[in-house]
Design a protein around this nucleic acid. Structure first.
Length: 273
DNA sequence: CGCATTTCCTGGAGGC
DNA sequence: TGCCTCCAGGAAATGC
């Protein structure tokens, strides 16, 4: 379940190995995962040079020259990694792109297919799904701007999951941030006073930065660009810890449903306001 | 309009 | 062992 820290980790790993490289032949094994410019990828991509790989919200973006962006959304089971061209092709591998001058290729694999690839060229023609608009980049947001998105009646957990409001948080980091900020997941966003709102933004930043330092959280599918697992899951305080003692106070962690998602919190650290 | 809920998809877990 | 059901979740679609 790649969220911002996982996308950041993958982007950094790929940037180190792909910057300045040229893309070679493309094999598209499943075409309905590709959106954007309707021309085939094996005509659009070969010969283009990777200028850099970076992250936007939860997405991994390859900036290509001339003027093209290849945007990967990993959904929940998506993996994007470099491997030797002779490595066995795992089930649900949808796209392979050779890297010129190496014996490696970039592979996109996504069993559950909630993810996808967008090839953006500036062409006015477009096929497939539109890439949704994204809201605030949490690591670059000021308290005053953050307070502006706290719509009145909305549950704070639902708001944190809404990519159009603030981008990059998924289920794990929403729960971890709310715990660190001592805010109940069902609290109404508009009920947060200024101190609580500022505390929440600080908790979001701290949690994301720490997760990035540990290479993200691996539960099932997520791997770094080099195949290694992240390790931040060892430091989760609430996520997936139903029935276990809170790491701050020892109270039993509770699981409820919020915004249609499993939501974990500590009833003592995160009291109803 | 502004919310909340359902849907898409597959693999893994657990029941029997 | 095998078959069944349920669950995970990002984001679009649908419902209230």
């Amino acid at each position: 379940m790649p969220e911002l820290p996982e996308a950041e980790t993958i982007a950094r790993g790929l940037n180190r190995r792909l910057a300045r490289r040229r893309l070679g032949p493309v094999a598209l094994l499943r075409s309905d995962i590709v959106h954007g410019d309707p021309r085939p990828l094996d005509r659009l991509l070969p010969g283009r040079r990777v200028m850099r790989v970076h992250r936007q919200a939860k997405r991994v973006v390859l900036d290509l020259q001339p003027a093209t962006q290849l945007v990967f959304h990993l959904g929940m089971s998506g993996r994007l990694y470099l491997c030797g061209v002779a490595e066995p092709i795992e089930k649900h591998t949808h796209l392979r792109i050779r890297i010129v001058g190496t014996h490696h290729e970039l592979r996109f694999r996504d069993p559950r297919r909630f993810g996808g690839v967008w090839c953006l060229t500036g062409s006015h023609r477009h096929k497939g799904k539109r890439l949704g608009e994204v809201g605030l980049e949490p690591l670059e947001t000021t308290p005053a701007v953050f307070r502006r998105i706290l719509s009145r009646q909305r549950q704070i957990k639902a708001l944190l999951l809404d990519q159009r409001a603030i981008a990059g948080l998924g289920n794990i980091y929403s729960d971890e941030s709310l715990h660190a900020a001592h805010i109940h997941p069902l609290a109404k966003a508009g009920d947060l006073d200024r101190a609580a709102a500022d505390r929440l933004l600080r908790a979001i930043k701290t949690t994301l930065r720490k997760a990035i330092r540990f290479g993200g959280s691996t539960f099932m599918d997520y791997r770094r660009a080099d195949g290694a697992e992240g390790s931040f899951q060892r430091y989760h305080r609430v996520y997936n810890r139903e029935g276990k003692p809170c790491r701050a106070c020892g109270t039993t962690i509770v699981r409820i449903r919020a915004a249609g998602r499993s939501t974990f919190f500590c009833p003592k650290c995160q009291p109803v306001a």
